[in-house]
Computed example of a mutant assay.
Amino acid sequence: MANAQAKTINLLLYEGNLSGVISIEDSGWNSGELYSAPRDSVNDLLDTDACKKYGVYLLLSKDMVYVGQSSDLAKRITQHIMGKDWWESVLILTTKDDSFTHSDIDFLESVLIDKARKIGKLDCDNKNKGNKPKVDKFREVYLGQYLDEALFLMQLIGINVFSDVKTGGAALINTIDIKTKLALGKRAKSEAISFLNDNGVAIDNKATYSVLSDDKSSFWANPRTKLLKEDWDIILNDTSRMELIIMCIPANSLKLSKSDENGLFVRSDKPELIDLKLDVQGFVDKRSGIDFSRFIVKRVEY
């Protein structure tokens, strides 16, 4: 017979692996929902129902968090794509029935900001404590229970930014060794960067990261157009050959497509993002025809 405290946790992998959008529900969480996505998959997250509801969002790196809330999550998160460079993934806390009110998300935002500030992991842009929460004592108990469960689920998928101590139980994702994570197409690029740094390849978090597509034919990414004016690094994770391919594109060596010259194409719905799709055979961009193989500087097996 199952323990009275037992629970079931449903995990939906939108891309069939850990490299894309994840949705989590918990039988002990009432109507709660958690969505998570790496920065490279944020546009897929914006297309889900999560971004049509009231909720709290977290911009995350390994050691830092920005906490916000909105009744228009898609619009707010889109603003952060251009406005903040440091974050690696985004997480959304909402409800299946869109039952949160403005007061509810004010409260949750305020509590999470306070938690992160106390342990020194809050992004400097979170200068205030959020909107002053206005919930009665009964609603405060309910939201406190909601938040406790949310923090538990965050730890389960390896997000410990609100904890200043190591948890006794290993996180679900953190129990996997780094090479296996890379082979699975692990959702965040931080493991790839860490692995490269440990193997003598210096690369920072501004690099564009892409995992081999499910049909094994290409690497797709939506880097920001402003990267063309900088020295731009690309990490391609070929999970079929189990290797990381590193490209370095010097600043101003590529341009955007115009009527009088060839160049990279942008997304029609988001012109601030490049629509990049590199063929796995020759690393030619399928949109522009530009050969990226000349920018390969290293291949690292894992």
Rank of each mutant, 00 (worst) to 15 (best):
N3R: 08
A6T: 11
T8P: 04
T8A: 08
I9P: 02
N10G: 01
N10L: 09
L12V: 11
Y14L: 14
V21A: 08
D26G: 03
S31H: 09
Y35N: 03
S36L: 13
A37P: 13
D40Y: 06
S41I: 00
L46A: 04
D49A: 12
A50C: 08
C51E: 06
K52N: 11
Y57I: 05
S61G: 15
M64E: 15
S71E: 14
S71M: 07
R76T: 13
Q79N: 14
G83C: 01
K84Q: 11
D85L: 09
W86R: 03
I92G: 00
T94H: 02
T94R: 00
T101G: 04
T101R: 03
S103V: 02
S103H: 10
L108A: 03
I113W: 08
K115R: 15
L122H: 04
D123R: 06
K127T: 12
N131A: 14
N131F: 05
K132C: 08
P133C: 07
K134C: 08
D136G: 14
F138A: 15
Y142H: 11
Y142G: 01
Y142K: 13
L143I: 06
G144N: 15
Q145E: 15
Y146N: 00
L147C: 09
M154G: 02
V165S: 14
T167M: 11
I176V: 13
T180D: 15
L184M: 15
K189F: 11
S190R: 14
A202G: 02
I203Y: 02
Y209H: 14
V211S: 03
L212E: 10
L212G: 09
K216I: 10
K216L: 13
F219L: 06
N222I: 05
L228E: 02
L228Y: 04
L228M: 04
I234M: 10
S240C: 12
M242H: 15
E243M: 09
M247A: 12
C248W: 00
C248E: 13
N252F: 05
S257F: 13
D260H: 13
V266N: 09
S268Y: 04
S268R: 13
K270D: 14
P271A: 09
P271C: 04
D275V: 01
L276K: 04
D279R: 03
Q281Y: 11
K286D: 13
V297S: 12
